[in-house]
Design a protein around this nucleic acid. Structure first.
Lengths: 186, 186
DNA sequence: TTGTTTACTTACTTACAAGTAAGTAATTTT
DNA sequence: AAAATTACTTACTTGTAAGTAAGTAAACAA
């Protein structure tokens, strides 16, 4: 069955987003799934392989979700991005980038490369969304769309981190300002 | 000598900002300082004690630096905050909050409490700075100063994280937009 | 000058992490 | 029916982490 393999990836994903890559061990996966640690090594020979698989799944889900939304107006599309982060905030999780980037220097190269891929994909999508949205008058902002996209992503990422430390209401306070600055929903 | 103790804290600070709290070990400190790991335990019985000391020093330095700037105009004061982060960016480091918040759930309680203290101090100072600056016409923004402060801190924190992954130019691209949105330096 | 404190080292312990080699039971292929 | 593959388990190994108990050399205090 593909079942166990999927469950391992899914649990690893949760663990990275809740405790960080360096802070979780195979035991955190084998115990709840009631399997042995060697079973994880059967599916993912090294922890690096598991980490890469987690990012791969995230990237594929991102591509699939945004692909389905492509026909919608850009403010709706951007709302999808905000909703994704809002959901994570409610679960007390941070995003993959927010979890992995502080540890970036300690991560094996294949993982570093995957993180770069993921960040590029998110940045490109957001840039395109903002650019087309501004052309249609759905957003109002100055400067390059790619720079503004960077600012949006930066805020979403950090609002999850700060919510952990300062309380979950912080997320809404930050994103509210962010959307106002974009002239969205006006 | 206080010398060794200070060097331990200083190295631990660098290690947390470059590799993360869970990813550094006493060996990373004892080797370069050419002491034994037991020497670190003499000054800091547990790793938690060392982590707390690192945040304490950061908090004291922050208080001292901002105290000295209190008489200056608020745009100059805010520039100090940006410069602090810009320096870290050039060294390839992230800020303490950026490094510790993803691992927050895995950290011992005394450390969690200290992080909360640090975040409160930075948020309060930035809020005050923005509020007084807006009254004087140095800044232009809508909404509560404390909400806007949250946005500023969020961006500074995340711009260091994203710079790691996407290249150090990202920092300038984000902060430039940020300052423009504040109507600073106009 | 003797006793105590400071700042360590030496030499451990305990725990747990990632990873592996060899075996097995069930399913699938030939 | 026999052979091979899949999805594991059992039982390790190796490495490294935090932490500790006991000893020591130098400085200082009585």
């Amino acid at each position: 069955m593909q079942d166990t393999k999927d469950r391992i990836v899914s649990l690893a994903d949760q663990l990275i987003k809740s405790r960080g890559y360096n802070a979780f061990s195979y035991k955190d996966i084998s115990d709840p799934l009631e399997i042995k640690n060697a079973a994880i090594h059967y599916h993912f020979p090294t922890k690096t392989d598991l980490g890469v698989a987690v990012i791969d799944v995230e990237l594929q889900q991102f591509m699939a979700s945004t692909g389905k939304l492509a026909a919608q107006p850009e403010d709706k599309q951007l709302k999808f991005l905000f909703d994704t982060f809002s959901r994570k905030n409610k679960e007390g999780l941070v995003c993959l980038m927010g979890s992995l980037s502080p540890d970036y220097e300690t991560l094996p190269e294949p993982l570093q490369d995957k993180i770069t891929d993921l960040s590029s994909a998110i940045l490109e999508w957001t840039s395109g969304c903002l650019e087309r949205g501004r052309e249609k008058g759905l957003f109002r902002f100055e400067g390059e769309p790619s720079d503004r996209a960077l600012l949006v992503i930066s805020n979403l990422l950090a609002s999850l981190l700060l919510s952990r430390v300062m309380g979950s209401k912080v997320f809404g306070r930050i994103t509210h300002q962010l959307l106002r600055d974009l002239g969205a929903g006006k």
